[in-house]
């Protein structure tokens, strides 16, 4: 009974974070902000969903369900490593390609090549100086 309520709470929280992720992916103005929504919300909501599934499976305890729960735990661990890495690969590719970005002071602006870089430095988007 208590386990059932815990399962429902975990899955509803995961659904809430997944809704936030989806809304962020649809609403945020540029690619980099969307990466924020995808990289964070995706990891935690998947973890919560699978955690709820682990609790539900362990409700009737036996050797087989324990094995299944261990496999699910492996998947959770794997997603915890793989999801930020995939996010990092995607945003690195986008940064290399200089996709259009959005800052507060300027509307959408495209950074292509060297000649626009000086202008972009004024917006404070690309880093000006290296911290010692």
């Amino acid at each position: 009974m208590i386990i059932d309520i815990l399962v429902i709470i975990a899955m509803l929280t995961g659904l809430l974070f997944f809704v936030a992720t989806t809304v962020g992916i649809i609403r945020f103005p540029d690619f980099y902000s969307r990466v924020h929504a995808a990289g964070k919300g995706d990891t935690l909501s998947t973890t919560l969903f699978l955690g709820g599934a682990i609790l539900f499976i362990l409700r009737d305890f036996s050797e087989e369900t324990l094995l299944t729960a261990i496999k699910l735990l492996l998947i959770v661990f794997y997603i915890f490593i793989a999801s930020p890495t995939a996010t990092h690969a995607i945003i690195d590719a986008g940064y290399e390609f200089r996709v259009p970005y959005w800052t507060r002071s300027s509307k959408k602006k495209c950074a292509e090549g060297e000649e626009t870089t000086e202008e972009n430095l004024d917006n404070g988007f690309y880093p000006e100086e290296l911290k010692g």
């Binding site: 997944f18 992720t21 989806t22 992916i25 690619f31 969307r34 990466v35 995808a38 995706d42 998947t46 969903f49 699978l50 599934a53 539900f56 499976i57 699910l72 998947i75 997603i79 999801s83 995939a86 996010t87 995607i90 590719a93 986008g94 390609f97 996709v99 259009p100």
Partner: peptide
């Protein structure tokens, strides 16, 4: 851009794992 599409596909694929587990349950 293409990379936005890749981002969306990554999120969908991660959630597909959850969906398969739910179907199994």
């Amino acid at each position: 851009t293409v990379i936005d599409r890749m981002l969306g596909m990554n999120v969908i694929g991660t959630k597909t794992t959850v969906l398969i587990v739910l179907v199994g349950i």
